[in-house]
């Protein structure tokens, strides 16, 4: 059985709140998990009193050493769990915005290089004309 590190939704309507859990992959999201690693509150909290920058924040509670253990024995984090675990350095980040942007730029420039520009067509037409002649 595959072990998953995933989120289990709690909380009322319009107030999501997640437990970060370790569970068997094929069990229901609401079922009792093997272990609750922590919680994730996706609602941004107002800036903390001492915060000079005044940035909103998201509250995450996580047993980091335990999460590291479960990843070590082969538990597979879901995309969201991967994102959270990569923030504390347990895993390599799956997606990086800069990487993806680089890829997009590369793909774009590659596509541009493949398609011949319209100006290059005119000499070919001339060539055709010469061939005919």
């Amino acid at each position: 059985m595959v072990l998953k590190i995933r989120l289990a939704r709690f909380g009322k309507k319009h107030t999501p709140f997640y437990n970060i859990v370790v569970a068997h992959a094929r069990t229901s999201p609401t079922s009792r998990p093997l272990e609750v690693l922590g919680t994730y509150n996706p609602i941004p909290q107002p800036p903390r009193p001492g915060d000079t920058h005044g940035r909103p924040w998201k509250d995450i509670k996580l047993d980091i050493s335990r999460a590291r253990y479960w990843v070590g024995v082969g538990a597979q984090p879901s995309d969201t769990a991967w994102r959270l675990l990569s923030m504390v350095g347990i895993l390599e980040p799956q997606y990086r915005i800069s990487q993806i942007q680089n890829k997009v730029v590369k793909a774009d420039s590659a596509a541009k290089s493949i398609i011949p520009p319209t100006q290059t067509r005119t000499p070919t037409a001339k060539q055709e004309g010469t061939n005919k002649a």
């Binding site: 609750v36 690693l37 919680t39 924040w57 995450i60 509670k61 996580l62 047993d63 335990r66």
Partner: peptide, 28 residues
């Protein structure tokens, strides 16, 4: 991160106690 800070607090899974029903335990 880009829009907000993610604040991770290190907790212990053992706080749920032996039967897993301690009110001080982590999580819902």
């Amino acid at each position: 991160q880009r829009r907000w800070d993610f604040v991770f607090q290190d907790v212990s899974v053992d706080s749920v106690g032996r039967n897993g029903r301690d009110p001080k335990g982590v999580g819902w």
